[in-house]
C-alpha cells in the first residue's frame, strides 16, 4: 500500500480504533453491571449536539474556530462514530416503545440522509467534472435563458424554413426549461441523442445556411444537456439537506424528551 493511500486512510484508522475501543469498553462495563445505557445515552446526546454545531459554524464563518473543511471532517467522523454509540446504546435488540421507536427511526433517517449526502458529495463532483464547464447553481436559469436566446437567434437568422419548423416542433421544449432527470445518474443521454439524431436526419432537407445553423444548434444542445446535468446533480447536492437538517432538529427534540424521561425514572446524579 502506497504512502499516499496510507495517509488517506490514516484518520479512518484512528476513528476505527476509537470506535472499537468504545465498543470493547462498553462491553466490559456492561459485564461489570454498570449502567452503560445512561453513559452511552449521555455520550450520544453530547455527540449529536456537537454534530449540530456544524450548522451553527456555517452561520458564523468569521469565528476563528477552525476551517470549514476541518469541521466537515469532524462532522463526518463523529456522525459515523455516533452509529457505534447508537448501537451500543440500544443494544442488540430493537427498541419497542413508541417514543423510542420514533427516535430510532428519526435517528436512522438522519444518519441515512447524512450518508447519502456524503456519498453524493463524493460522487457528484467527479461526475460534474466530466461535464465541461463549472456552473454556479444559482446562475443556471440565466445560462439556460442565454442558451435559449442564442438558439432562437439561429432560427431567426435562417428564416421560416425547415430548420425553423424543426426547432419549433422538437427543440423548443428542450430549451424551455431545465430537464431534470434521474437518467443523469446513469449517464443515460437517450433524450439528447434522439434529438440530435432527428436533427441530423433533417440535414438533407436543410439549405446551406440551415445546415450551418444546425451544427451550431447541436453544440447548443450539448451545452444545454450539460447544464441540465449540473442542475440535476447540484439540486441533489443541495436537496439532501432538506431531509438531513429538519430531521436533525426533530432528532434533538426527541432525544431531549427521551433523556428527560429517562432522567425522571432514574436516580438523580446531582
Amino acid at each position: 500500500m502506497s504512502t499516499r493511500v496510507v495517509k488517506q486512510f490514516e484518520d479512518y484508522w484512528i476513528w476505527g480504533i476509537l470506535a472499537l475501543g468504545v465498543v470493547l469498553g462498553y462491553h466490559l462495563l456492561t459485564l461489570s453491571l454498570i449502567r452503560t445505557n445512561i453513559l452511552s445515552g449521555i455520550s450520544l446526546f453530547g455527540l449529536l449536539l456537537s454534530l449540530a454545531l456544524f450548522s451553527v459554524r456555517k452561520k458564523v464563518p468569521f469565528l476563528p474556530v477552525g476551517t470549514a473543511a476541518g469541521w466537515l471532517k469532524f462532522h463526518i467522523y463523529c456522525g459515523l462514530f455516533s452509529v457505534v454509540l447508537f448501537a451500543v446504546h440500544i443494544g442488540v435488540g430493537l427498541p419497542n416503545g413508541y417514543l423510542d421507536v420514533s427516535l430510532a427511526i428519526v435517528y436512522l433517517g438522519v444518519v441515512s440522509s447524512g450518508l447519502v449526502g456524503l456519498g453524493l458529495s463524493i460522487w457528484i463532483p467527479k461526475q460534474l467534472a466530466n461535464c465541461g464547464e463549472e456552473v454556479i447553481f444559482e446562475r443556471i436559469p440565466i445560462l439556460q435563458r442565454q442558451l435559449r436566446k442564442e438558439a432562437e437567434g439561429l432560427v431567426e437568422s435562417t428564416g421560416n424554413g425547415e430548420f425553423g419548423k424543426f426547432y419549433i416542433s422538437q427543440v423548443v421544449p428542450f430549451f424551455e426549461r431545465t430537464q431534470y432527470s434521474h437518467t443523469h445518474f446513469f449517464n443515460n443521454d437517450r433524450t439528447r441523442q434522439e434529438l440530435l439524431n432527428n436533427l441530423r436526419a433533417k440535414h438533407s432537407f436543410f439549405g446551406a445556411l440551415e445546415r450551418e445553423s444546425a451544427q451550431h444548434l447541436e453544440a447548443l444542445i450539448h451545452t444545454k444537456y450539460n447544464l441540465d446535468r449540473h442542475a440535476t446533480f447540484q439540486g441533489f447536492l443541495k436537496g439532501w439537506l432538506f431531509i438531513h437538517i429538519p430531521l436533525t432538529a426533530s432528532l434533538l427534540l426527541l432525544s431531549m424528551t427521551h433523556g428527560i424521561i429517562a432522567y425522571l425514572y432514574s436516580p438523580r446524579f446531582f
Partner: peptide, 15 residues
C-alpha cells in the same frame, strides 16, 4: 428519588 452521586448512579442499574 434520592439524589445519588454520579459514580453511584452509573454503577446501579436502577434506583
Amino acid at each position: 428519588h434520592v439524589a445519588v452521586p454520579v459514580v453511584d448512579g452509573l454503577s446501579k442499574a436502577e434506583s
